[in-house]
Design a protein around this nucleic acid. Structure first.
Lengths: 107, 107
DNA sequence: CTTGAATATCGTAATATTGCAATATAACAA
DNA sequence: TTGTTATATTGCAATATTACGATATTCAAG
């Protein structure tokens, strides 16, 4: 195996899992944190900021973009990336929904 | 490689990433959702509920427990698992912090 | 002690991820 | 066109993850 049995789970669950999975890497958390603090959106700045090679960063950006956590706008030779707060909010809502339903009387 | 270069990132970032990573699998999302809706905490119920073998579920439970997302209390032959809402809140806070700082003027 | 029920662990095959060098592509400037 | 800068893609080696059968382990009941 090594393959996740996604067929047996609902679309909703798979969607959520892929969102979390995209966040589940330190480099990608670092990218998100950097995007948070920057006034302007970046690109090569990340290569200078993070101790990873350019292809590696490009790959991580792609994964974040694939699930819609970040967006990229072409601007000449460079690309302006930024956070997609709506998508990130889905994670927040999910966690919030857990709290709402939970009864605290066990364990 | 195949190995994440965690040494080059801060403790805080690695911690967060491992939390997200633990949530980044449909089976584990399903487990969390099931724990949310149950009145009582479960154990073998998950094996009946999810289309995965017992060792597989046990393994996923272990991963969730390792990062503190769930807790398990031994109760005779069975184990009573439940969500750790405090730990889950850390994810929520992180997302909330992204919203707070974000300037919306790009992309 | 023996049995059975609930979980955990081990071992392993199949597949996925990570990181990067090398290379490609794209846009612009001179 | 040529060079330069910014980013993406390819290919691959090293390692991690997933799933599960087989096998332990742990506890309660008899």
């Amino acid at each position: 195996m090594g393959t996740t049995k996604s067929e047996v789970f609902s679309e909703e669950i798979n969607e959520l899992a892929s969102l979390f999975k995209a966040m589940g890497h330190p480099a990608r958390i670092a990218i998100i944190q950097f995007l948070r603090t920057q006034e302007k959106c970046i690109c090569t700045d990340l290569v200078n900021e993070l101790p990873l090679a350019q292809p590696t960063i490009s790959q991580h950006l792609k994964e974040l973009k694939n699930v819609g956590i970040i967006q990229g706008n072409v601007s000449g030779t460079s690309i302006c990336y930024c956070l997609n707060l709506e998508r990130l909010s889905e994670i927040e809502s999910f966690i919030a929904s857990l709290k709402y339903d939970q009864n605290q009387s066990c364990c």
